[in-house]
Amino acid sequence: MTEYKLVVVGAGGVGKSALTIQLIQNHFVDEYDPTIEDSYRKQVVIDGETCLLDILDTAGQEEYSAMRDQYMRTGEGFLCVFAINNTKSFEDIHHYREQIKRVKDSEDVPMVLVGNKCDLPSRTVDTKQAQDLARSYGIPFIETSAKTRQGVDDAFYTLVREIRKHKEKMSKDGKKKKKKSKTKCVIM
């Protein structure tokens, strides 16, 4: 069974824990209790493949930012979460993405942009803004509501699919490099 290491990042209060708990335990946590770091595991079937999701729910508070490099190193894919009623959390996505790329030393890291709290009427981040940002990053965008469960499975499952595509691409690139290195030079 394939294991996928997913990391949920975003500013404090955007609903990272609520999304994760909704996926794992099928219930909505409405009281806000700032996370330092929590880890969850769940076995699911995605596109006919049974897999184990190892999900790291991270601290959004700035005082825990020193811990970010460590979990970013171990993560295979990242859910970059903002709240649709919090423009600052949307603007912060850029910083999370840049930090992930720096730590992973790669421009090509599996990510999904997630606009959470889409059940709320007080939207300050337009869907088109988020779609445009995701398009500019070359990553999928999904709106979710941890409260109603809308888009929750889709967000995590899409990230797994992005990781699969990335692994497939990397193995193809690896095979191309191996083929090239088999060419021999004969000096007579």
Rank of each mutant, 00 (worst) to 15 (best):
V103I: 09
V125M: 12
T74H: 12
M67R: 09
H94Q: 11
C185N: 15
K42E: 07
D154C: 10
A11F: 10
I93E: 01
Q70S: 07
V103T: 02
G75L: 04
K177L: 15
T58H: 10
G77K: 00
E76R: 03
G48K: 08
K182Y: 03
V103N: 09
I163A: 06
T50Y: 03
K177D: 15
K180Y: 14
R135F: 06
T58E: 09
V109T: 02
A146S: 09
C51I: 10
R164S: 10
K5N: 09
G48P: 04
Y4W: 05
L159R: 00
D132Y: 06
R135Y: 02
I100P: 00
M170Y: 05
A155C: 06
D54H: 13
Q22P: 15
T74L: 07
K117R: 10
Y64S: 14
I187A: 15
E107T: 08
L52F: 11
E37D: 11
H166G: 05
D173S: 06
G174W: 00
V29S: 11
K172P: 13
D153N: 13
D108Q: 07
G174N: 06
A146F: 09
F28I: 10
D119F: 00
D119R: 00
K165R: 05
K128I: 11
K182I: 02
V44L: 06
K176S: 09
Q150G: 14
E31G: 11
S39C: 07
G138S: 03
K117E: 06
S89Q: 14
C51Q: 04
N26I: 05
G48F: 02
F141L: 09
A11S: 05
P121H: 08
F90Y: 08
H94C: 04
K180F: 03
C51S: 07
Y96M: 15
L6F: 08
I55V: 12
R41N: 08
V112N: 00
R73N: 08
Y32C: 11
E91R: 02
L159F: 02
K184M: 04
I21C: 14
D33F: 07
E168W: 08
D154Q: 13
L6T: 02
D126G: 11
K117D: 05
G151M: 08
L133Q: 07
E37A: 09
E3D: 10
D38N: 11
Q25W: 02
V81R: 00
K88V: 03
C51A: 05
C80R: 01
D108T: 09
Y64H: 13
E37G: 13
Y40G: 13
S145C: 11
T87G: 13
S122G: 14
L159N: 00
R135I: 03
E98W: 01
M170C: 14
Y71A: 11
K182W: 04
D132A: 12
L23F: 09
G151R: 03
S65F: 04
D57I: 15
A83H: 04
K175T: 08
S136V: 06
E98S: 04
Y40C: 13
Y40H: 13
I142C: 05
L56Q: 15
R123M: 10
M170L: 13
I36F: 05
K167I: 03
